[in-house]
């Protein structure tokens, strides 16, 4: 088993390296559930602090409705993968764990995709390839690796909910700003006066980059002041 044990050492070494963020390290020691949940929303918010999952963040935030759908899909996938990984964490072979994570995530994403196609066909059409692309979203594999494969079921569930909520809230805020400026509506309800001229650029990719940049800057300023 020379080969096997070699992998064993190597992969645990990798595990340590993967815990790059302060928030992540804190989490596995401190098991306070409330803290775990709120870490996902602010301290280690996947989009604003860890800069994970940028692809859906930029691509589906032209309006609140698709952003919310995307956020909830990610919550479901995260929950599913964290539960399965957490339950199987003692059976996982360290050098095959990524395969196991991918298999779990792919299953969850396929379920979400089928569900949207069956029950929300219009949303599914407008989100296009971005639902299947959740498979390669780093947030999910990151949480499986950093939290679920080391913690019990309850912690993993709370972590999934917190991270998912953080992701969803961020996407919705970004989408709300862009939707108001690009169309004058929020959640397809008109909020701006009739004389408002829509800023079409905010609905385009350039709007996503600029708005995300400004939000990231604002969050950095706030967290520097409160730290």
């Amino acid at each position: 088993m020379v080969l096997g044990s070699g992998f064993y050492v190597l992969s645990f070494h990798e595990n340590d390296k993967l815990n790059i963020s302060k928030g992540l390290n804190k989490m596995s020691k401190d098991v306070s559930l409330g803290k775990t949940f709120f870490a996902g929303i602010w301290d280690s918010n996947p989009v604003l602090r860890l800069l994970l999952g940028m692809c859906p963040t930029l691509a589906v935030t032209a309006a609140v409705k698709p952003a919310l759908t995307m956020g909830l899909s990610v919550v479901f996938v995260l929950l599913f993968s964290n539960i399965v990984v957490s339950l199987l964490r003692h059976q996982l072979k360290p050098h095959l764990r990524i395969l196991m994570f991918t298999l779990t995530i792919a299953t969850a994403v396929t379920i979400a995709d089928l569900y949207l196609k069956a029950f929300m066909p219009e949303m599914s059409a407008s989100l296009g390839p971005y639902i299947p692309l959740i498979i390669v979203n780093c947030i999910i594999i990151g949480r499986a690796e950093a939290c679920a494969s080391k913690n019990g079921l309850i912690v993993s569930i709370i972590d999934a909910l917190g991270m998912g909520a953080g992701f969803t809230i961020t996407l919705c805020v970004l989408a709300a700003i862009r939707e108001v400026l690009a169309t004058g509506n929020i959640f397809e309800i008109t909020v701006m006066p009739g004389s408002f001229t829509p800023w079409a650029a905010m609905g385009m990719p350039v709007g996503a980059f600029i708005t995300l940049g400004l939000i990231l800057g604002a969050v950095n300023i706030i967290s520097k002041k409160t730290a």
Binding site: L92, L96, L99, T107, A118
Partner: peptide, 25 residues
């Protein structure tokens, strides 16, 4: 073994869901 078993289980799960939802799609 874990990979193989879960692959089969997940495959069955997806097959069932797909069979249930495909007509709707």
């Amino acid at each position: 073994w874990l990979l193989l078993v879960s692959a089969i289980l997940f495959g069955c799960l997806l097959a069932c869901l797909s069979a249930a939802w495909q007509p709707k799609i």
